[in-house]
Amino acid sequence: MNIGLIIFTSLIVAPFAWGIAIYNQLVTLKNNAKKSWSNIDILLKQRNSELPKLIDTCKQHMDYEQETLVRVIAARKNAEAALQSGDIQQLSSAEHSLENSLINLFSVVEDYPELKASDAFLRLQTRITSLEDSISDRREFYNESAATMNTRREQFPDNIVANIFNFEAFQLMEFQLSELNDVSVADAFKS
């Protein structure tokens, strides 16, 4: 048996074999990031479908807060449009505006004790808060998946394979500065 041939073949085959392993891993990471995005997408749709009910409930009691309600409606519309466009940066900003408008809405609820005590409002509050928490958790999971993919495509030797096969970076859902200051919808309810 020709030993030189065995060694030479293994030297030739090795880079290809490693290249294939890296390529397959990058494909897996890309699919993981896409899957984790679809995890958020489903919750955002659920939350967006709950908001009109909240607005309807608030409308019945809040006679002097039309501007606040209009802001929530507009922010929801923007968030819905951003979700459909698939632009993560636009969605991050739209979600941030929506969260702020909800915080405003819940802070003025204090002036309407009847609304605050209503069963329908309390249940919608619980439902939306729970959805917001889940969205926030899954956003972290998505960011982790996307960051893993982005790191790999920049690291050597993965970057060679990633450049040859045009693996694109995933955008992260950025956290706004104000979100880092423990401002949440749940807190707004409690105030």
């Binding site: 897996t28 993981n32 899957k35 984790s36 899954r138 999971f141 982790e144 893993t148 790999r152």
Partner: peptide
């Protein structure tokens, strides 16, 4: 790579997949 690149979830997040 499978071990290091798989993201961890909790039963609060229950990320599917």
């Amino acid at each position: 790579r499978t071990l290091s690149d798989t993201c961890r979830t909790s039963l609060r997040t229950v990320a599917q997949g």
